[in-house]
Amino acid sequence: AEKTGIVNVSSSLNVREGASTSSKVIGSLSGNTKVTIVGEEGAFYKIEYKGSHGYVAKEYIKDIKDE
């Protein structure tokens, strides 16, 4: 049951290796980017990222929809 969301930041949002603010940053997404959410862990969504997965803070994702 995948969902999509939109990155809701003015600059960019860090994509992390794990569901923690201390996890390594593996990339970033600019505002209004559409993401595919494959799961959630605590305050983070697990998303599809560059052929693999990454984690982003839930508070910066809006317009969550079921695909």
Score class of each variant (00 low, 15 high):
T4N: 08
Y49F: 11
S10K: 15
K46L: 07
V9F: 07
E17D: 12
T21H: 15
A57S: 04
N32H: 05
L13I: 09
S12N: 11
V56W: 00
G31R: 11
D66Y: 10
T33N: 08
R16P: 00
I26R: 03
E40K: 04
S28W: 15
D63L: 09
S20L: 13
F44D: 03
E2S: 12
A57T: 07
V9K: 10
R16N: 07
G18V: 13
N14V: 15
I6R: 05
A57I: 11
N14A: 13
V15C: 02
E2V: 15
S52M: 14
S20P: 02
S12R: 12
G18P: 01
N32E: 11
I61D: 01
S23Q: 04
K50I: 12
K58G: 03
Y49M: 03
I64N: 08
Y45R: 01
K3D: 03
D63N: 09
Y49K: 00
V7A: 04
G42P: 03
I6D: 02
S10D: 08
S10C: 06
N32V: 05
V7R: 01
E67A: 15
A1T: 07
G18I: 08
T33M: 09
N32S: 06
V38N: 05
G54A: 11
G27N: 02
K65H: 15
Y45L: 08
S20A: 15
G42C: 04
G39Q: 05
E41Y: 09
A19D: 02
G39M: 04
I26V: 13
G51T: 10
K24E: 07
I47G: 00
E67D: 14
G5I: 03
V35K: 00
A57F: 14
T4E: 07
N14H: 08
S22I: 11
K58N: 03
V25N: 04
K58R: 13
G31N: 12
N8Y: 09
I37K: 01
E59D: 13
K50E: 15
K24L: 07
I26P: 00
I37C: 02
V38M: 10
V15G: 00
N8K: 10
E41A: 06
V35G: 00
S52G: 13
I37E: 00
Y55N: 00
Y49Q: 01
I26N: 02
G27L: 03
V15Y: 02
K58Y: 03
E2I: 15
S52W: 10
G54T: 01
E40M: 10
A43C: 05
I6M: 09
K24M: 12
E48N: 08
I64K: 05
V7L: 06
S28N: 12
S52C: 05
G42F: 15
S30I: 15
E41T: 05
I26C: 04
A19P: 13
G5W: 05
E48K: 14
Y60H: 13
A57G: 14
N14Q: 12
K46Q: 10
S23F: 10
A43T: 06
A19L: 05
S11G: 15
A43L: 12
T4L: 08
K3F: 11
K34N: 10
R16M: 12
Y60I: 03
S12D: 10
G42L: 08
S28A: 10
I64D: 11
S52Y: 10
V35L: 04
S52H: 14
G5N: 03
T21I: 05
K34V: 10
Y45P: 00
S28L: 11
E17Y: 08
E48C: 04
S23M: 07
G54R: 02
G54I: 01
S52I: 12
L29I: 06
I47Y: 00
I61N: 01
I26S: 03
K65G: 11
V9Q: 14
G39N: 08
N32M: 14
A1L: 08
H53F: 12
V25P: 07
I47Q: 00
S20C: 06
F44H: 04
T33Q: 07
F44C: 04
G5Q: 03
V56N: 00
S10Q: 10
V15K: 00
I37Q: 00
A19S: 06
V38K: 13
K3W: 15
V9L: 10
V56Q: 00
Y55I: 00
V35I: 08
F44Y: 15
I61C: 02
G27T: 03
D66P: 14
A1S: 14
S10L: 14
L29Q: 02
S22Q: 14
S30M: 09
E41K: 12
S28E: 15
E59P: 06
S12Y: 14
S28P: 04
V15A: 01
E67F: 04
S23W: 04
N14L: 08
D66C: 06
S10T: 14
S30W: 09
A19F: 04
G54W: 01
E48R: 13
L29G: 00
G18M: 15
I64E: 12
Y60C: 05
S22V: 14
V7C: 03
T33P: 03
V25L: 13
S23I: 02
S11W: 15
V38W: 10
E59Q: 09
V9E: 11
K50R: 10
R16T: 10
E40L: 09
T4H: 13
G31K: 10
Y55T: 00
F44S: 04
S10F: 07
Y49R: 01
V25G: 03
S12W: 14
R16A: 06
I61S: 01
F44T: 02
L13K: 02
V38H: 06
L29V: 12
E2W: 14
Y60V: 04
G18A: 08
E59M: 09
S23P: 01
K50V: 07
T4W: 11
N32R: 07
R16D: 01
N14K: 15
K34G: 04
K34D: 04
E67C: 05
V25H: 06
